[in-house]
């Protein structure tokens, strides 16, 4: 295609519709500048890396990236395990996996924010020291560190007594 003004090779192609009529404009770069069209100094970067990255994340990405390896400190569930089994391990997962969960909720529930009933005395995440103690207790048992397990159990009992 040649430039409509100087018959050099056209590089800028514009289509506009005015009053329902379609108008096409083909210009070379100097003529386009002269016509007052602002052009980028260099060709736009396609950002192929980003496109590929986006595709990976959209299809398998969350399972191979750092998100997959996110592990809940309270229950030890990894995000990848949740994606495979469909069940979370403890309430803290909702915070730890927020980055992966919120888009999922947006797709499946069409919302990412609760509306409706709340407990009269809402719990907060920092109210979960027992959850952490329990996971440490389980780990100590698994490692056969019974001394530590016993101390953790005592701590749990004293917290139970506070309840």
């Amino acid at each position: 295609m040649t430039c409509q003004r100087c018959h050099e090779e056209a590089a800028v192609h514009l289509t506009e519709t005015v009053d329902g009529r379609r108008r096409e404009l083909h210009l070379c770069v100097p003529c386009a500048r002269e016509a007052g069209l602002s052009l980028p100094a260099s060709p736009p970067k396609l950002g192929l890396d980003q496109v590929v990255q986006g595709l990976i994340v959209a299809h398998v990405g969350e399972l191979v990236g750092e998100l997959a390896e996110l592990t809940c400190p309270d229950c030890g569930v990894r995000f990848m395990e949740f994606r495979t089994l469909g069940r979370l391990g403890c309430p803290t997962d909702y915070q730890v996996f927020a980055r992966g969960l919120l888009p999922l909720l947006g797709r499946s529930q069409g919302a990412t924010r609760h509306v409706g009933k709340s407990p009269r005395r809402p719990s907060v995440a920092s109210d979960r020291p027992r959850l952490r103690l329990r996971s440490e207790f389980r780990a100590a048992i698994a490692l056969e560190d019974y001394e530590r397990a016993a101390s953790l159990r005592d701590q749990l009992r004293s917290k139970d007594a506070d309840r």
Partner: peptide, 8 residues
């Protein structure tokens, strides 16, 4: 609030 979910 302070227990893991059932599967854990």
């Amino acid at each position: 609030n302070d227990f893991p979910f059932i599967n854990r």
